[in-house]
Write a protein that binds this DNA or RNA. Structure first.
Lengths: 191, 191
DNA sequence: GTCTATAGGAAGATAGAC
DNA sequence: GTCTATCTTCCTATAGAC
């Protein structure tokens, strides 16, 4: 991916974070990227192409984001907290990313063509969380853990739900993070 | 509310469930309600008015929905299950309601004017769930329960998150319900 | 209250010069 | 690759008759 393309896709993510996927207007997007609308159509075939590329770009950044936030030498319990809490931060770029991810999820309700991307990304995230949970449990108990997919699905789903409540003004970021921490503890306690 | 208005608002909910809040087109909405666009503007001032009324109507129906699903003589544990699982059903009208509610939540990220309605409805729902949880705990333990607001917030949030995953094709309705049941059990176990 | 017809404007997409 | 200018379509909202 060229520098220019990344610059344009960053603008797309900003506009989506401001107006939503359905609210993305090519004109506003082009202005945000400081290029003409014609150039947008030169890079991406049409409006759907813009969304497709923007959401794939988001996907790429999400993986990098998690790896960056979780150093390899962290103990499993701390790593679990980190990887789940990393999306729930008030910093502007994290917040933007979070809004855009929520929009991707919401769009897939009406746009089946997005579902496959979403399914694989979500699946990888769930598996990753389940792996770390297994490490936590086996480190603590010293015995093999049962299947943790369900617990990992609940926790990752809770992250998505909490992010929407936070972003829609229902609770503060501190409260949101506190609720998630409580859920992690509750899930681990029942294993 | 007159019969005619309810009929029109039902059409609005159907269209929102099909295309989303931002995807609602007055023309399609009018056609769905089998009236002219002019009549839409006669009943609701403008497009924003349509959304406002549709979402308030949704709100009204949600409360009725829960009361209907939870008979007064049900034991607290069963009532808790019912009131949380009631939105997660594949029946077409429930599914529609669920999509529209998700859209309301998602819209509030970009439309601050919707947040107050959303906040009060959510708050009432959380309080209701917390009350029933208290009954469950006090029936089982025989001693006063601690504050359960956090647990109720997590469970209701999980319902919202799970509904989005279900509706976006990530998991089946059976799996979704199973995950929620698991979470209810986990939350109760840690009290 | 309800309709038909349409004004007026926004937005997606393209043509063609540089 | 990048722009300006514009075409066309679609959509909100209104005018005015019944």
């Amino acid at each position: 991916m060229r520098e220019r393309e990344r610059h344009i896709l960053d603008a797309a993510v900003r506009v989506i974070a401001e107006d939503g996927v359905q609210g993305l207007r090519i004109g506003k997007f082009a202005a945000e990227a400081r290029v003409s609308t014609a150039l947008i159509y030169h890079y991406f075939e049409d409006r759907a192409g813009v969304l497709r590329h923007a959401l794939e770009y988001l996907d790429l950044r999400a993986a990098a984001h998690i790896e960056e936030a979780v150093p390899a030498d962290l103990c499993p319990r701390a790593a679990l907290d980190r990887m789940l809490l990393v999306e729930l931060q008030s910093a502007l770029d994290v917040r933007m990313h979070c809004i855009a991810w929520g929009e991707l999820r919401a769009s897939a309700v009406f746009a089946p063509e997005l579902r496959e991307t979403l399914r694989s990304t979500t699946g990888e995230w769930v598996d990753h969380v389940a792996d770390v949970m297994r490490e936590v449990v086996e480190t603590a108990h010293g015995s093999p853990a049962p299947d943790l997919t369900g617990a990992a699905e609940r926790l990752t789903t809770l992250v998505e739900g909490l992010s929407k409540r936070w972003l829609s003004g229902y609770c503060t970021i501190e409260r949101t993070r506190e609720l998630l921490s409580g859920a992690i503890t509750a899930e681990l306690a029942t294993i």
